[in-house]
Design a protein around this nucleic acid. Structure first.
Lengths: 361, 361
DNA sequence: AGCGCATGATAAAACGATTTACCGACTTGT
DNA sequence: ACAAGTCGGTAAATCGTTTTATCATGCGCT
C-alpha cells in the first residue's frame, strides 16, 4: 500500500491562526487536492474515491472546523443563499408569526432570511432594487398591505427575481400563497348566526384588497345559506391598523340602526373596534358581539378578550418560503392556498347570544 | 486630443442580456480597464484619471445599470456587508421597535440585516455558529431574555465576531447598549408616590437579569427619597412574558396585605398582571394602580389601558447597530446608555389617586 | 542629451470555493 | 500482449471584484 504523498506536519508551522480554515488548508492537511475536498464535502455522487480518503477528508475538515466561505461559494454558484422577506408592519404580532414560519422554513433549507420594512421599501425603492441587482438575495417574499402593491411588484417582476406574494393573489410572474379566507370568515359568521344574531355587520379591511374581498365573500355565503344578506349600511371599510378599526367602529356605532353583531375582517381593526365601543359606552358583548379574524396573543388581553377565528399564519409564512425556494430551484410559479390547520373558532368573551342584546337603540 | 482606444460598439453583439452587467462589461464599453472602473466607482482618491474618463465610466455604469456583485465584493473585501440581529421573541412588539431601529441604522450604512430567533439559536446553536464561521455576517446584535446569555455569549466571544448586546451589560469582548432603566423606574415610582400611594409593590422581570436589577434600583431610590422602602413580600418575580406576569399577579393578589399600587418592570408582564386582576375581580385602578415600563401600542388597548413610562427602544436598536458597525470598523468595545429621548410618563387609565383605593382587603 | 517626475492609465494577483476535463496506474478480457 | 475500461484521483479555469505593482508617454529642467 503506497501512502499518498502527504505534506509533513511541520511542527514549527503557524497553526495558531484560529480563524477560517479554507479548503486549501483541509486539502493540504488531508494530503489531497482541493477538488477532492470540495467534492467529498458536497457529497458529489459522481466522485469515485477510496473510503479511507473520504473519511480522512471529513476528519480533517471536522478537526479544523472548516466551514465553506459563503461569499466564495455564492460567487461560484451564482446564488447568495439568502432570501428577503418584506413586511409592512413589524409591530403587528400576526406578521411576527408569519416571519417565524418563514424563518424556520428558510433555515431548514440552509438559507438565511433578510427582513425589510415595506415602509423603507416605499421610501427608498432603490435599496430593494440594489439588493436585487447586486444579487444579495435569490428571491423575495412580500407581505404587503393589500392593494397598492402593483408598482413595487412590477418593478420586481422586471428584475426577474423569483417572488412570492403572501396573502393576495397577483397577476404576473410572482407566485402567491394565501389562506382559506373564505372558510374563516364563513366560520366566524356562522358562529354569530348560531348565537341567534340576524343583524350582522361587517368591517372590512381595505375593501379593494384581494384578501378582504375573499373574506367578505365568506360572510355573504354564510348569510346567504340562511337566506340573509348584508345590509349595505352595515358594511364599513377599515384597514389593517387599530386606528382605522377605531374609526370604522365609530362609524358603525353612529348608525341609526345598529347590528347586534359584527365580524371584523382584520384583528388589528377588531381591537380598534373594541376601543370604539368602550369609548362609546357600548357594552361588548351585551350590546354588540364582535368577532375577529386571525388569532394572536393580544386577543387574549383586550377588553373584553376577543373571540376570533384562528388561522394558520405561521404555516402561511413557511409555505411562502417553501414555494419561493422551489421557484428559485427552477420550479414553476404557483399559487397555493394554505388550508391546514383549518380555521378554528377560539371562543373568548366578545361574543354572546343575541337574546342578551337589547333592541338596538 | 487623442481619443483613447475604444472598443467599437459592435451592432451585432448580443446586448440583449439584461441580467447583471459586470465590471468587465462596463470597462469594455467605456474603453478602459476594469481597474479604472472599479476605482472610479469606488471613488478611490489615489486614482489620477482624466475627468472625461471619469464621467464616461459613470455614464456607462449608469446606462448598463451596473451594480457590483455582492458575493464577489464580499469575497475580495473579506466582509459580508451583513449583520445579524438575534431576538428572543418576535411577537413582542417592543422587540419590533428595536428591530426597526436597528434595521434603519443598518440600511443607512448600506448593510443588510438578518434576523434570527433566539429560540432557534438555542435549539440549533450550530446554525449561528455556521453563520459566523462561514463569514455570512460581520457582526452580531443580541437581544436576549436576560440571564442565561452566558453560554451563547461565550461561544460567540470565541468566534471573535464583533458583538453588541442590547439591554444588559456584559463582561467580555462584547459591547453593550442599555437604556436608562433606573431613571425610568424612578419616574414610574414617583408617579405613584405623587398619586398618594405609600404601599407600593414591584413585579420584577427575571430578578437576576441585569436590566431588572437596574430597574428595581430605580424603584428603591424613589422610595428611599421619601424615607420609604420596599416590603419584601411585595417584590415578586415574573419574567418577560404575559403568562409569567399573570402568575406573578396572582401571587401578589394572594398576599394577606396588598399594596395599593404596583410597578411592573416589564410591559408584557404588566399586561399579564392586568389579566390577573380582571380574573380576581380586583378593579384597576380603583383597588390597585398598575404602571408598566416601556410603551407599545398594546398598552393603549389593554383593559384598562395601561399607564407606562415610555422608553426609547427604537433608538436602543439603532444605537446598538451603530456601535456594532463602529466595532466592525475596528473601533473599541464600548458600553453605552441611551438616554435620549428621556423616559416620559404616558398617562392612561391604570393608575389613580390612592384616596380612591379602599383599605386593603 | 539625459534625468526626474507627473499624468493616466494597465496587467495581474489575489479572495475561496466549485467543476470540467483530463490523466496515470491497474485490471480484465481476448 | 494489448485495447479497453475502471479506479482514484489532479490541474486548471472560473465566478466578479479590488488593489498592488508596473508602465508608457510627454514635459520641464539642467
Amino acid at each position: 500500500m503506497t501512502t499518498p504523498p502527504r505534506a509533513p506536519a511541520e511542527p514549527g508551522s503557524p497553526e495558531i491562526r484560529r480563524s477560517g480554515a479554507t479548503v486549501v488548508d483541509v486539502a493540504r492537511e488531508a494530503g489531497v487536492s482541493v477538488a477532492v475536498v470540495s467534492r467529498v464535502l458536497n457529497r458529489d455522487p459522481a466522485l469515485r474515491v477510496r473510503d479511507a480518503t473520504r473519511t480522512r477528508v471529513h476528519a480533517v475538515a471536522e478537526q479544523l472546523s472548516y466551514t465553506p466561505n459563503t461569499s466564495a461559494r455564492s460567487l461560484r454558484l451564482a446564488s447568495s443563499g439568502a432570501i428577503c422577506f418584506v413586511v409592512n408592519d413589524l409591530a403587528n404580532p400576526i406578521h411576527a408569526a408569519a416571519i417565524e414560519g418563514a424563518q424556520a422554513s428558510a433555515e431548514r433549507s440552509g438559507r438565511v432570511m433578510l427582513l425589510t420594512d415595506a415602509d423603507e421599501l416605499s421610501a427608498h425603492p432603490e435599496r430593494l432594487q440594489g439588493m436585487l441587482d447586486s444579487r444579495r438575495v435569490d428571491g423575495l417574499v412580500m407581505h404587503l398591505p393589500g392593494i397598492r402593491d402593483d408598482r413595487a411588484l412590477r418593478r420586481i417582476a422586471q428584475a426577474r427575481v423569483p417572488t412570492v406574494v403572501m396573502n393576495s393573489r397577483v397577476r404576473g410572474p410572482a407566485g402567491s400563497v394565501i389562506l382559506d379566507d373564505e372558510a374563516a370568515s364563513r366560520l366566524a359568521t356562522e358562529h354569530l348566526l348560531e348565537l341567534g344574531h340576524r343583524e350582522i355587520g361587517v368591517i372590512t379591511a381595505l375593501a379593494a384588497s384581494d384578501r378582504s374581498q375573499r373574506r367578505r365573500q365568506g360572510v355573504e355565503r354564510a348569510l346567504g345559506a340562511r337566506g340573509l344578506s348584508l345590509a349595505p349600511e352595515w358594511v364599513i371599510e377599515a384597514g389593517f391598523s387599530v386606528a382605522l378599526g377605531e374609526v370604522a367602529g365609530d362609524r358603525l356605532l353612529a348608525q341609526k340602526r345598529r347590528p347586534t353583531a359584527v365580524v371584523v375582517l382584520n384583528v388589528m381593526a377588531a381591537i380598534g373596534v373594541l376601543g370604539a365601543c368602550r369609548r362609546a359606552g357600548v357594552a361588548v358583548p351585551d350590546e354588540l358581539s364582535v368577532i375577529g379574524l386571525i388569532d394572536t396573543w393580544v386577543c387574549d388581553h383586550s377588553s373584553p378578550p376577543l373571540t376570533v377565528v384562528q388561522m394558520p399564519i405561521r404555516e402561511l409564512g413557511a409555505q411562502a418560503v417553501s414555494l419561493l425556494l422551489e421557484m428559485i430551484e427552477g420550479g414553476p410559479r404557483a399559487s397555493l392556498i394554505v388550508r391546514e390547520p383549518a380555521p378554528r373558532l377560539v371562543l373568548r368573551s366578545s361574543t354572546a347570544s343575541a337574546a342578551s342584546a337589547p333592541a338596538a337603540r
